[in-house]
């Protein structure tokens, strides 16, 4: 039985194995992903992002528990950074999701970003595809808490939840750094701390002042205490509202169209790049060309053309792509 079949049957082991394959040998996972693709598109993909330590994992845990009460099946992907030195990583998000570990309706996967800087791992996108095809109703994706550049999530999630906490000082900075544009829902977590209300007002003011806001969806601002569950009901309602909005306004389809376009582009790029390097491993005289550059016998622009031309020839001779 293929891994894809196992995934379709909801088997945890197959699901886990396929995600590993995607992480380690993505080219070998293509067959399974192909088989799963027709079964995707049902899950609501919710991104949870924000600076380190604002409570993303705790919120994810609380949201998942709340959704479980309604019987929804939940997938969770939590991404942490890898050490740039050793390549290793301590994946710690799961610690806040201990009670979900043995719930058969929940699948949690920790992921190292493995050098990728946008807040997700390269494999996250396809891992979501696996969970989606496996019948998860909601997939919660926790990004790396990098604060500034977690833009991957916009291209991945249907609903992006941006978390902030009072008293971290850099909040307004973060907002300025472009978070404003990506949030579908704001959550002010750790509302048990002083100044939550003030942060909420500041944020509201900023939203009101922003001329570029699209008019049909006003991102709501929710307040939560993730550790006690306070405000989670409202947060979930806000996320669901957004989903409904996406569905009824036709924006969901529009977003997904954009997303597929982007994905197609990157798959195409990856595919060509892979083929080109395969070709060059066989046929290449890279070093020679570099020497020529050094001796000023050619320039990089002409050299590139000369390198690619025979590759294109050889590819066009192949009937079957």
């Amino acid at each position: 039985m293929s891994l894809a079949e196992g995934v379709r049957r909801g088997e945890v082991r197959a699901t886990a194995k396929l995600i590993t394959l995607i992480e380690n040998h993505p080219e070998s996972a293509v067959e399974d992903l192909r088989a799963l693709h027709p079964h995707t598109g049902n899950a609501h993909i919710v991104g949870i992002t924000g600076s380190p330590g604002i409570g993303k994992s705790t919120l994810t845990d609380a949201l998942a528990k709340r959704w479980r009460k309604d019987g929804a099946h939940i997938g969770i992907i939590a991404v942490d950074p890898n050490s740039p030195f050793s390549g290793g990583a301590l994946l710690g998000d799961r610690i806040r999701m201990q009670e979900l570990a043995t719930d058969p309706g929940v699948f949690i996967r920790s992921m190292g970003a493995r050098g990728r800087l946008g807040g997700l791992a390269r494999a996250t996108h396809n891992a979501i595809r696996v969970l989606d095809a496996g019948g998860k109703d909601v997939i919660l994706v926790e990004t790396v808490g990098v604060g500034q550049s977690e833009l991957d999530i916009v291209r991945t999630a249907d609903t992006v939840v941006v978390g902030l906490v009072p008293g971290m000082g850099d909040d307004i900075q973060t907002i300025k750094a472009g978070i404003l544009e990506v949030a579908d829902v704001f959550v002010i977590n750790k509302a048990d701390r002083p100044d939550a209300r003030r942060l909420m007002m500041e944020l509201q003011t900023m939203l009101d002042l922003d001329p570029e806001r699209h008019s049909h969806w006003e991102p709501p601002i929710e307040r939560t205490v993730a550790t006690t569950g306070e405000g989670i009901e409202m947060l979930m309602a806000a996320i669901r509202n957004h989903w409904e909005h996406l569905t009824y306004s036709g924006e969901l389809e529009q977003r997904r169209r954009e997303r597929y376009a982007a994905e197609l582009q990157s798959v195409v790029e990856d595919y060509w790049r892979m083929r080109f390097f395969e070709y060059w491993q066989r046929e290449g005289h890279w070093e020679q060309v570099v020497e020529q550059l050094l001796r000023k016998e050619t320039d990089p622009f002409s050299a590139a053309r000369k390198l690619v031309a025979p590759f294109l020839d050889s590819e066009s001779r192949r009937v079957n792509l």
Binding site: N82, S83, S86, G87, G88, A89, L90, L91, G92, R94, I95, Q98, A101, S110, G112
Partner: peptide
């Protein structure tokens, strides 16, 4: 856990 991380592994520690 730290030693394994520093040896390039991805380590999950659940407390």
């Amino acid at each position: 856990a730290r030693a394994l991380r520093d040896a390039g592994m991805e380590v999950i520690y659940t407390g």
